[in-house]
């Protein structure tokens, strides 16, 4: 299927799924999907569908040691067995899952104001319901919304985006087919306002001359994602206020 003949960008400048090289997939975000969790969010980015739930800050679980000056961030990542085209048996210790969870945790340690929550722990659970490329980036976007829904103090939105580079063309927000082409896959997470990067990861190699273009496209993509996440969060806040718009302006 992935022969070299496969054309990733047509002569008309369209990708396999009809997008332009610098176009994102359609993003739909819903905040607050669970009552039970402190915070939750569900994001569909194209066909990648990810559910993030946040519990905490709460007392540190037994296996971790509390830090006296800040909170521990704990992140777990699971891919549903039905998430990929071929059904996968669940594996107990998936190294790639641990790796991804560590990357997400690292990204949020730079954004969450952990020093406000000494001796506590914040749990982020990421569940992939459908996997179509860019999981790492979509996980970060979903976790951002879930953390905000949980009322956890953050410096800024953490927005992430992946960029591939096939035949010297940088492709924004690559899907599974483009990812499987074997080209470089750069995932960047930035603090949206200050444009500080909190995560830059790339597998496979990319020529240094191209890197600048690819990175810039990724950061532009993050900015576009930020506006979508921001409006989702404002919608959620408005909805809660509208539900509470009874007599209780003073106490809510």
């Amino acid at each position: 299927m992935l022969s070299r003949k496969l054309e990733f960008v047509s002569p008309e400048g369209l990708r396999i799924d009809g997008r332009r090289p610098n176009e994102l997939r359609r993003i739909q975000a819903r905040v607050g999907v669970f009552m039970q969790a402190d915070g939750s969010a569900y994001i569909e980015q194209g066909n990648t569908k990810i559910l993030a739930t946040v519990y905490g800050p709460h007392e540190v679980s037994r296996k971790n040691k509390p830090l006296h000056d800040r909170a521990i961030i704990n992140c777990e990542y699971r891919v549903a067995s039905f998430a990929t085209a071929e059904r996968k048996k669940p594996v107990r210790t998936d190294k790639r899952a641990l790796d991804l969870a560590a990357a997400v945790r690292g990204a949020f340690e730079g954004a969450v104001m952990t020093q406000l929550y000494p001796r506590s722990q914040i749990d982020i659970f990421l569940q992939v319901l459908q996997s179509d490329g860019g999981n790492r980036a979509v996980c970060i976007n979903a976790a951002t919304l879930a953390l905000m829904d949980a009322g956890i103090a953050m410096k800024d939105f953490v927005c992430a985006c992946s960029v591939g580079c096939i035949d010297d063309t940088p492709l924004l927000d690559i899907n599974y087919i483009e990812d499987s082409a074997g080209g470089p896959d750069l995932t960047v997470a930035v603090l949206a306002r200050s444009r500080k990067t909190v995560l830059v990861e790339m597998d496979s190699r990319l020529h240094i001359d191209r890197f600048d273009d690819v990175l810039r496209l990724a950061i532009d993509g993050c900015q576009a994602i930020h506006s979508i996440l921001d409006s989702a969060m404002v919608e959620r806040t408005k909805a809660l206020l509208a539900g509470a718009a009874s007599g209780a302006d003073a106490d809510l």
Binding site: D17, R19, E23, L24, R26, I27, G46, S227
Partner: peptide, 9 residues
Amino acid sequence: VEPSSSSSS
């Protein structure tokens, strides 16, 4: 084929 929303493009 899922075109992105016009605002983001």
